[in-house]
């Protein structure tokens, strides 16, 4: 099976600073793949390049066989590639409900001419609302619909970020440190929830985490970045045993 995401020889410099150098990797459909590396190793930058934040200096990115480097972030989202941020970026002063409803693409009511006439977009709106309400139930957020996002707890915000991603046609998720600043036990909860999502919705996950240990039980394959280069890759066990990785982490 062809990989759903394919990164080929991506290089990215910021001024003189090397953020990524010749990074190539594949992610299979319905897989859960980890991306680990010490702080500042270029993990977030790789996500930024994949999702169209920065064009790569060199190299190519393919999603579902289509070349996506050079596309704008919104176009990439529409293809089904959803990302989350290290610091969650939701619409904090809007309600949870609106945060869900706003996501679907090209709603009829977003047109300037149709927007004032409720009749023209009522049906679509109700369908979206039904989808949102069932997703919120699945994610255990049903009780917070009318709350502002800024009133939610950290864990709920993380949940909402994923739920929101599913409102679109998300097939693959790039999660930037979904368990950042969370204790080990809670991190395990989050990762098992992600695995459940993968199984239930048939999604693909590519997950950044800078602690190796917590991720190991959940992913099938791991890439290790170090100073912008791919240091090692393989199953979690292989990577854990790789002396280069051990060295990089102890050297840190």
């Amino acid at each position: 099976m062809a990989p759903i995401l394919k990164v080929v020889n991506v290089t990215k410099y910021f001024g003189g600073v090397r953020a990524l150098e010749d990074v190539s990797l594949d992610v299979e459909k319905r897989a859960m793949v980890g991306l680990i590396g010490p702080n500042g190793s270029g993990k977030t930058t790789l996500f930024n390049v994949i999702t169209g934040f920065y064009p790569p200096d060199r190299g190519e990115v393919y999603f579902k066989g289509r070349r996506i480097d050079g596309l704008n972030p919104n176009e990439i989202f529409k293809l089904g590639l959803v990302r989350t941020f290290q610091n969650p970026r939701l619409f904090f002063n809007m309600s949870v409900w609106e945060n869900m409803l706003v996501i679907p693409q090209d709603q009829k009511g977003e047109s300037l001419l149709k927007a004032p006439f409720t009749r023209l977009w009522l049906n679509e709106e109700m369908e979206i609302a039904k989808k949102a309400s069932s997703l919120l139930k699945d994610f255990g957020l049903k009780d917070f619909v009318i709350n502002k996002v800024s009133d939610l707890s950290g864990a709920h915000i993380k949940l909402l970020e994923s739920a929101r991603g599913l409102m679109g046609k998300g097939e693959m998720f790039l999660l930037d440190e979904p368990a950042a600043g969370v204790a080990h036990t809670d991190a395990h909860k989050i990762f098992s929830f992600i695995r459940r999502l993968r199984d239930e919705y048939g999604l693909t996950f590519f997950i950044i985490e800078h602690r190796i240990e917590v991720l190991m039980d959940y992913v099938e394959y791991v890439y290790v970045l170090h100073n912008g280069r791919l240091l090692s890759q393989g199953t979690p066990e292989e990577v854990m045993r790789d002396p280069k990785v051990i060295h990089a982490y102890i050297g840190e």
Partner: peptide, 19 residues
């Protein structure tokens, strides 16, 4: 829906773009 999208853009235009 247009008003909702506008509000999202006001809140965080980069997030809106990524969504």
């Amino acid at each position: 829906p247009l008003g909702r999208t506008m509000l999202a853009i006001r809140e965080d235009e980069i997030a809106a773009l990524c969504m």
